[in-house]
Design a protein around this nucleic acid. Structure first.
Lengths: 202, 202
DNA sequence: AGAATGAGCGAACAGTTGTAAGCTAAGCGG
DNA sequence: CCGCTTAGCTTACAACTGTTCGCTCATTCT
């Protein structure tokens, strides 16, 4: 096995170890370098051959999580072309992601309001990809002016994100309710934004 | 000074110490019992005379934070009676709370998605007070059926809460933009919910 | 007055943490 | 083939953690 190849391999072992230790009861902040190294099967000090510190690892995790989200978006678009129902398909795809990769979603959810400004802005950046895509869609499909399309997209993403967070603590039999509730909320936004262009009065 | 009086006094010292150590870079989870005790001016072991462990302290903090929020609501209602503009007054009051007690708000924001299920549900309970109050208002003032009034209130509270979170990382000169953006979003919801009662099609 | 309670303290414990220093040995470039 | 590079290791240290134990001594109760 080549040298660089082996290095990449244990780098991945570290990343996977970190991901697999995340859970409902364990946030990234509560992971220790030694724990991660132990699970990755390396000595604690070897960790430094790959990351300067835990923060650097964390940013990598956030990036990877963002990547998964973007892949999800592509998948959602394919489904929409076949299915037609934009809102429902988007939310259902998102909910599948949340329930199927709950630790990844939890990472984003927590670091969005975590103690590291770098983490927070990294998560914010990933979410902005979502918002930008949706805003562009709204600009095409509706008569909404640009600025309002963005505000509408932001509201929608926030609501969907929050529904994902709710799902993490809810029993699976409630997923259906959560989904349909969110669909209703998004329709209100769409309908309201469509018929309620702009009004000056504060 | 009476015995019970003195006990209450150092109990408050502990609580205040914990609150004052929270910041943008320090979450409750990253507080240590010894740090808190040090700042409160007591020996580490004396902590146990007041709380069984840090979790118990944390739940107390969440309760107190919730109390502040409810006081805020009362204050907002008074302002509304004098001012008239419901949405704007509510949001502005909330934003004042967030910027004036940022550590308290951060506590709620973080523990809402934290690692302790007890904390999460405690925060959720406090937020539900908000939602319930608003839903009741909507039922009175609009023609919305009960179930939808609640969904509408939930969406509104989520959006406002999120705006608060945004404000924590934004420069003060953006508060105005954040506020007016949120007002727009809430109006969309209100308008959409009003003209868009119920539709069966999924 | 005398006994009981209990808040607060200091010392000590076993455990964990991040990180520095220096070694080994395997892969690589000349 | 030899020397350099470097991933990974072991050892070590100082700092901190939560928690137990036993003590003091002011307040309270009888």
């Amino acid at each position: 096995m080549s040298r660089a190849e082996q290095k990449e391999r244990t780098r991945r072992a570290i990343i996977n170890a970190a991901f697999s230790q995340l859970s409902a009861d364990k946030s990234f902040a509560s992971l220790s370098l030694r724990e991660v190294a132990r699970e990755a099967g390396i000595a604690p000090t070897s960790f430094y051959r790959h990351f300067a510190d835990m923060d650097e690892l964390g940013l990598t995790l956030v990036d990877e999580a963002g990547l998964m989200l973007r892949q999800l978006m592509r998948q959602a678009r394919q489904r929409i072309e076949k299915n037609g129902s934009v809102i429902r398909t988007s939310i259902e795809t998102f909910m599948e992601f949340v329930t199927g990769n709950s630790n990844v979603f939890r990472l984003l959810l927590r670091e969005r309001s975590g103690t590291s400004a770098a983490f927070r802005s990294a998560v914010a950046r990933e979410i902005q990809h979502f918002v930008a895509e949706l805003a562009e869609y709204l600009r095409k499909e509706t008569t909404c002016p640009d600025e309002l399309a963005r505000a509408q997209a932001e509201a929608m993403v926030i609501l969907v994100f929050h529904t994902g967070a709710d799902a993490l603590d809810a029993p699976p039999e409630q997923y259906g309710y959560l989904t349909s509730r969110t669909i209703t909320q998004l329709r209100w936004l769409a309908h309201g934004a469509a018929g309620y262009g702009r009004k000056p009065k504060g």
